[in-house]
């Protein structure tokens, strides 16, 4: 009998539905993938699972019953966008069905450990970006931070800035996923970013000239001065610098502009 592979559309709802369907499948399921991650194989039967709110809801409330951490884990697995996230979750839920909440402690089980690792990675990158996002202040006072990330962490970061800059209006823009969130001092909502602006910032890591106010240029310049002055040439260690602050994050960092060959 050929292998059975379930595919879903890449949404959270789709993922939960596919996992739910797989768990209930009478035939052993080989894998569960987001469509974009699947490399077709001759020997597999693939089944595209349509997202179904009711099924997704049910599996969520099942996880809720197990523990809050289990829901958290599913959420984080999804945000990690790891190609195996759905597989791990499928194995995890099957284990939960037989062993209950104790599964969360099964550090030696591959799927459980992988889920925990993914979750840690997502938190780590979110924390990292909470520090490495750079706002540009626009003419009208809106703070705008374009960025790129491995995992889908924009919601985590938005949560952080909702507390920190509650009384300011700001936009976080994940240029890779082209998704932006706008905080209007009251609520958070998805925002549309002008295509031209997106293309420009994605390419140059900076606002186009006409949007950079004199003030903004001034403080960017001061920040670069500070960043250079505070380093000790006698202790220079770029290897160490890069291991904390990998190159792939430099693109949007005001202080690293023009240092790409450092």
């Amino acid at each position: 009998m050929s292998e059975l592979v379930y595919l879903y559309d890449g949404s959270f709802e789709g993922l939960l539905t596919a996992v739910a369907v797989a768990v209930k499948s009478p035939r052993p399921v080989h894998r569960v993938f987001a469509g974009r991650h699947y490399v077709p194989s001759l020997f597999a039967t693939t089944l595209m699972v349509e997202g179904d709110p009711a099924q997704a809801e049910r599996i969520l409330s099942y996880l809720q019953e197990i523990s809050k951490d289990a829901v958290q884990l599913a959420m984080q697995a999804f945000l990690s966008e790891d190609k195996d996230a759905a597989n791990y979750l499928y194995e995890f839920i099957r284990l939960c069905l037989s062993r209950g909440a104790a599964v969360l402690q099964f550090h030696t089980n591959d799927s459980v450990r992988s889920l925990l690792n993914l979750s840690r990675k997502v938190d780590f990158e979110a924390h990292r970006l909470n520090g490495m996002l750079r706002f540009r202040i626009l003419e009208d006072g809106v703070l705008y931070a374009p960025f790129q990330s491995d995992h889908n962490v924009i919601a985590h970061c938005a949560g952080h800035f909702q507390k920190r800059l509650a009384e300011r209006t700001w936009i976080l823009h994940d240029t890779g996923r082209n998704f932006a969130l706008y905080w209007d001092t009251n609520s958070l909502q998805p925002a549309d970013i002008d295509d031209e602006l997106r293309a420009y910032t994605t390419h140059f890591g900076e606002l186009p000239e006409h949007l950079l106010t004199d003030q903004e240029r001034y403080y960017q310049h001061l920040w670069r001065c500070f960043h250079a002055a505070v380093s000790n040439p006698e202790r220079e260690n770029k290897l160490l610098q890069r291991s904390f602050m990998p190159r792939r994050y430099w693109h949007f960092l005001v202080e690293m502009k023009g240092r790409n060959r450092g």
Partner: peptide, 15 residues
């Protein structure tokens, strides 16, 4: 937890 914002060329955190 504290947050690091950048790292200077000597590899030290700038917070």
């Amino acid at each position: 937890r504290g947050i690091c914002h950048s790292w200077s060329a000597d590899g030290r955190c700038i917070s």
